[in-house]
Structure formats: structure tokens, C-alpha cells
Design a protein around this nucleic acid. Sequence first.
DNA 1: GCCCACGCTAAGCGAGCGCTCACTTTCGGC
DNA 2: GCCGAAAGTGAGCGCTCGCTTAGCGTGGGC
Lengths: 207, 207
Amino acid sequence: MSTAQETAGGEVEPWEEVTPDAARRLLIAAVEAFAERGYHATTTRDIAGRAGMSPAALYIHYKTKEELLHRISRIGHDRALDILRTAARREGSAAERLADAVSSFVRWHAGRRTTARVVQYELDALGPEARAEIVALRRQVDAEVRGIIEDGVASGEFDVPDVHGTTLAVLSLCIDVARWFTVNGPRTPEEVGALYADLVLRMVGAE
Amino acid sequence: MSTAQETAGGEVEPWEEVTPDAARRLLIAAVEAFAERGYHATTTRDIAGRAGMSPAALYIHYKTKEELLHRISRIGHDRALDILRTAARREGSAAERLADAVSSFVRWHAGRRTTARVVQYELDALGPEARAEIVALRRQVDAEVRGIIEDGVASGEFDVPDVHGTTLAVLSLCIDVARWFTVNGPRTPEEVGALYADLVLRMVGAE
DNA sequence: GCCCACGCTAAGCGAGCGCTCACTTTCGGC
DNA sequence: GCCGAAAGTGAGCGCTCGCTTAGCGTGGGC
């Protein structure tokens, strides 16, 4: 790999931005535990144990258990938004950009399934302020996808009677991958991404 | 309405089968609480309180808190399966049956959103045996949708390269409705059902 | 060689959890 | 009018939760 920040696939190694090392280990342990059992069923003792530390060590790096979830959710949403923005702003037709957005968004939900599960399904465990911050990010996610679809409608590439509803459906399709995808299943993240991109192009009447 | 079991819309009144009355009130309270906060964040005191009873009353009708979730999940999956079977076995073309299945399944996820949330997202809170029973029901749900799509492919109505993957996508679309739908939103369950049925017909190349 | 700031642990606090128990109330059968 | 079964309550048990506190080991600065 070219730098310490990139994998062979070119994807940024996740959680690089979390320092120091002990804080990152705790956060990764929390992602795994939250994804497996859910936020409320996960104990601080479990998180600390997975990170190879005592329960008290958690509180040196994070004020509360909720702050851990907040940090995970914030970073995860930033990454998701980044993926969509990259696809939305590249060169190419609306169909190409939509297919790119869907396939890369799906690849993330499948390949980083533990993170995606926490990001998509544990929002309600956050307090009001943290929740509001994340909801704002979700609106930006929605706007990126809607923007591509509107471009396609304007250029005549797409035939979409209900842009808002179709945007919702496209995001539904992508997000639900985090619910059912498993590494033991018959499909790779790449295969699911390609399939779903094709299905979405059909949904917008681009084929 | 024709009988005590049916609403004006012809839908069977839910939880009719749960008796006695106190057990039903507790179960309905549990559905609301689980849907709002999640199984693990819900206390038995909260459930009993919503039903207007003391915490101890819960244990007269249910052995454990988990038994409540199990009963809810079982009844909910039975109802979901019933909806899909009714659509799959009616008269008509594959396209008509698929549109009927999707629109009624989506209407259920939107209109009975609290139940659907518990049914679709709290599976992991069940113990191994209960979980296995529910997973078997989900396979039947999958089989019903796949059957309609296979019919359409066989008759030449549909153009679907990947039947299993497309089945997964159709169910994803329907199920995710329980995550985002809200009664305060701009759409009625009927509108979302009609929109999603149309999008699914596009996905299978039926238009 | 001393020191102290930092990272961490062992022990444990108060609170709230799922669930139980001893008891009361209600009510149909005779 | 009495009785046993069924349904419900108030009090609280044993436990585990999120989180705190007092103190220990260690390594860089001087």
C-alpha cells in the first residue's frame, strides 16, 4: 500500500483519526459490541474487555458510554457522506454517477457491516443534541442522492414521477444491506453493489 | 364492520387472538415500548405501567420479558406471511400479484409501524430456540416473494438476471419502510405502497 | 537520581434491573 | 354465606449496570 492510511483497495483505513491508540482500540471494540448485541445490551465491561483493558480505562478516554456511540456515529456518517459526495461530483452522466453512488454506498454497508449497523440502527440511543447533529448529516446524505436523480430527470436520462419517494427507496435499498448482509453469505460486497446499482437504474427508468 | 374481528378496511384487528384481556393489554404495551426504545432499553416496569398495572402483574401472564417479545414476533411474522401468501395465491398475472404483494406488505410496515419495527429489528434479542423458529418463518416470507418473481420470469413477463438477489432487494425495500416511516410524514401508507409497487415492477422489467 | 504527570487498575458506590413472594381482593359454584 | 381459584398488589431480593475514586507503575525532563 502506498501510505499507512490506505489499504490495497485504496480505501482509507477506518478509525485512523482516533487517537491515542488505546482510545482507538476501545472505539473499535465498541463498534463490534454495538453491532453484535446493540447499544443497550452492550456493557462498558464488555467493551473494555474486548479492548484488553479494565472497565475504568474507558472513562479516561471517553466521558460516557454514549460519547463512544456518538463518536462512532459521527465518523461513520461522515464517511458515508464522503462516499456519496465523491460519486455525485465525479465526471459522467447522471446514470453513471447514480450507479457509482449506489454501488460504492452498498459496498460500504456490506464490507463495513459492523460499522454500518451501528450507524444506521443505533441512532435512537443517542441523546437529543447528538441525535440532532446526526439527523442533519442524514439530510445531507438524502440531498446528495436526490441531486443525482434530479440531474437525470432534468437531462431526460431518467423517468421518475416521484423524485423524493424514489430517493427514499434508493437509500432504503442501500441501508437495508447492513441488516441482512453477512460475510458467510454467497455474495461479495462488490457483487451486491453491482446488482443493486443495476436495480436502481431500472427504478429510475435509465435502461 | 361485518364482524368484531374486522375493521372497516377489512383488516383483521390485531392481537385479537391474545387472551385474556389483561394479557393483550400488556402485549400491546410491550409492542409500543419495544418499538419506541428497543427491547433492551425497555423495562418490565415501563410495560406494566403503560398497561396500567403493577410490575408483578406481568409475570402472571408471561414467564419472562423475552416471552413477550417472542409472542409479538411470532404473531407479527404470521401476519406478514399471511399478507404475502394472500397476494401470491390470488388470480392474476405475476405482475399483478407482485404489485399486490409489495403494496400490501409495505402498507402493513407503514400502517402497523410499531409492530413491524419490533418484528424486523428485535430478532437478535431472542434466545436461540425462539430465534430459530422466527428465522424459519422468514425463509417462508422470502420463498413467497421469490415464487412470484420466478413465475414472472417463467411466463416471460419479467426480465430478471438474478432472481435470488432481486428477491432480497424487493424485501429490503419493503422492510426498510418500518425504519423511516412516520405518521407525521407527508405520505400515507397507501401512497408509499403504490409507489413502491411501481418501483418494484420497474426492477423486474415488467413495464 | 529524583519527580511527577500520565495511563491504568482494583475496588466499590448508588441505582435500577428482572423477577419473586406473601398477601389481598374478586367472583362463580353450591 | 362460605370456599377455592384466579388475578392483582406492595415490598423487596439478588444482581449487574454505568460510573467514580484512591492509588500504583513507569518513563521523560532536569
